[in-house]
Amino acid sequence: MSSLKFFVSAVVLLTCSHVFADTTQTDVVIVDRQSSIVKLFGAGVGNLDSYGTGVLISDKGHVATVWNHLVNTGFLTAVVADGRRFSVQVVGTSLEHDLAILKIDSEDDDVFSFVDIQAPGSVFPGQSVYAFSNVFHVATGNEPVSVVHGIVACESTLDAGLGRWQFPVKSPVYILDAITNNSGAAGGLLTSVNGEPLGLLGREIRHRGSNMWVNYAVPWKTLRPVVAAILAGERVAASKEPVKDSPPVSDRRLTSTFGITLMPEVLDNTPAYIDRVIPGSPAKASGFRRGDLVLMVNDAVIQSVESLQKELGGIRSGQRVTITVNREGSIVVLPIRVP
């Protein structure tokens, strides 16, 4: 009985000591962890950034990151801490965990410093943490990635997303008070102040209930078995999985395939007015006219040019949709097959 009590207090005390790491140790921890982060570069899509972050999880150059548009664009470059630049292949992905595992194209004798996710740390609400990432692409080349501090606010399930995209992880994640919900930070590393790996920084999404940008990280303890499965070849590569997070339809594609030109998007939330309908196009055939204001695509409300582009981007070619427009004060419903 007393030995159990001892054990419990030992755990508590050891945990406490993590909070108050002395400063010399902090320097070492930060430099050490920065060396295991890679800056990822790919193609931006629309408003989405062309850069992100990844965490090296093996000395062979395996990298964990969030499975977002950057991974989907196909060609990726990783810049490691010493400034060396490598091309990167996707090894495998998990939709349910919003995770992608990449592999740096390296020579046999290249060795990378990495984070051992086999031994993730544990953390309680209120404990101090560091978040490392290529946020805002501030650091270039061999410049160390940015580090911000904060605490774990809670460990909780998360109902969040962006537009139609829903955050898929069902198990609890770490909610942070540090601002990690920023361009390029997704795929960064969350650690304790002692440098123990805690989780993978999440992407730029909003909490469904409050519509606030939410700062979170998916715990390594959740990701570890998934990583193991991917590395064991039990998961297929990204290209064979359905892509839920589809890129929005560009202005050019709207014109060339649908036959619609929208009002230029000069401001955020520019209403989706149709400026021009190309003669002989599918849009013309479906009865669209200049001056129509698009209100809905199927059941989804369209508030702006951007939301229309996103909505259409999520629909496969060949599918039928109904588009509701406001034409001089009256509601008109127009069916169209997505070209």
């Binding site: 007393s2 030995s3 001892f6 054990f7 207090s9 030992a10 005390l13 050891l14 406490c16 000591s17 108050f20």
Partner: peptide
């Protein structure tokens, strides 16, 4: 089991001294 709990206690004593100082330092 006794031996094991003793060793935990030893670890605890060492670390608790350190933590005591750290709490003051906070």
């Amino acid at each position: 089991r006794v031996v094991r709990s003793l060793s935990i206690a030893t670890v605890l004593l060492i670390s608790s001294t350190g933590i005591g100082q750290e709490v003051v330092s906070v």
